[in-house]
């Protein structure tokens, strides 16, 4: 059940958008396809919808093979980044569109539309036209329109991409709650890792037409499978392996999260000297930009109290302790304390 994608490839001219992708989206889960632009995430979503026909591979939705079915036969709900509402129709008419295509009776259409207007909390705005709504309202109408036909799966292409930061935050929380209510297998595309972390049950990280890792938000952050995932999810410092003596192979790099760097005033056996170049206050936390002695930049994250307790400032030299570093050798992750890696 859910969505199964098997060995899908798609090429646009010389550009390999999808390269032999396999994916299983479990029934009832909300899954994010996360990746930089050009990583193939939108193409994968559109291939599942039938808006793009893959060059090879197969697609199943709830056990039924969909590979050769038209979009209109797949019973999917699709939400577009720029809403794609029918601007010549009112909110009610937009939501009713799919029901009317399916020749649902008038009274039943009205009942369903009212139900959906309740769900998206736009009861009073049914007779407005899309041009008279805000971006967030439009996207909720688009969602109601997609849900009206009771699709087997819900597919959302950068659904919050065109909205302002605040609306975006509200709407993604709302989408998560809505998903808990309706429990419909859903896939959404995003390039915003924070969004993926906050909304999704599972994150699929894509890069250059391939899937790098599939896992829960916690898993992809704590146990990144590849250097790409490590760099893409969360902030990270990348240090050359040649820094001090190290067990990591030459040519590979060592990754350290900003919060795994401890700043202290006194040197210890494993600490390194660094100069503070810049300090950024971010509400409850402080970002400290440092320069190691060999001109290697480093970013550390501290909470406010820790920082104030240290009592140092830009230009001063401090000692940094690198905790929990991760290195990738032959594609295998090795994590451990820097003493292991930097000795």
């Amino acid at each position: 059940m859910g969505i199964v994608v098997e060995n899908i490839s798609k090429r646009f001219g010389h550009f390999q958008a999808l390269d032999q992708v396999d994916l299983v989206v479990p029934d009832g889960k909300l899954v994010a396809l996360l990746g930089p632009s050009g990583s193939g995430k939108s193409t994968l979503l559109r291939a599942i919808a039938g808006l793009e026909s893959p060059d090879q591979g197969k697609i199943w939705i709830n056990g039924q093979e969909m590979t050769h079915l038209n979009v209109q036969e797949r019973q999917i709900g699709f939400v577009f980044q720029h809403y794609a509402l029918f601007k010549h129709l009112t909110v009610r008419q937009n939501i009713a569109f799919g029901l009317e295509i399916r020749k649902v009776k008038g009274a039943e259409v009205r009942r369903r539309v009212n139900e959906l207007l309740d769900l998206i909390q736009l009861q009073g705005l049914g007779d407005r036209y899309p041009a008279q709504l805000s971006g967030g309202q439009r996207q909720r109408v688009a969602l109601a329109r997609a849900l009206a036909v009771q699709p087997q799966v819900l597919l959302l292409d950068e659904p919050f991409g065109a909205l302002d930061a605040q609306v975006r935050k509200d709407l993604r929380r709302w989408l998560r709650d809505l998903h808990h209510q309706v429990n419909l297998t859903s896939v959404f595309v995003t390039h915003d890792q924070e969004e993926a972390m906050e909304v999704a049950d599972e994150i699929v990280i894509m890069n250059e037409g391939r899937i790098e890792q599939v896992g829960t938000p916690q898993a992809v952050y704590d146990n990144p499978a590849t250097p790409f995932v490590m760099k893409f999810v969360g902030e990270v410092n990348i240090l050359p392996s040649g820094l001090h003596r190290t067990h990591a192979q030459m040519g590979s790099s060592v990754f350290i999260r900003p919060h795994a760097i401890k700043i202290q005033s006194q040197p210890t056996a494993t600490s390194l000297a660094a100069t503070i170049t810049h300090v950024v206050y971010r509400g409850w936390g402080v970002h400290v930009e440092l320069m190691l002695s060999d001109r290697i930049p480093l970013t550390a994250q501290l909470d406010r109290q820790e920082w104030e307790f240290l009592g140092v400032d830009t230009g001063e030299t401090v000692q940094v302790e690198l905790q929990e570093a991760i290195a990738f050798a032959d594609g295998q992750q090795q994590s451990g304390n820097p003493p292991l890696l930097f000795r």
Partner: peptide, 16 residues
């Protein structure tokens, strides 16, 4: 193309 794609995802055929 998006309104056309939206119509098709909602079940509309070419003529509709």
């Amino acid at each position: 193309p998006e309104p056309e794609e939206a119509a098709r995802t909602l079940g509309a055929n070419d003529w509709q």
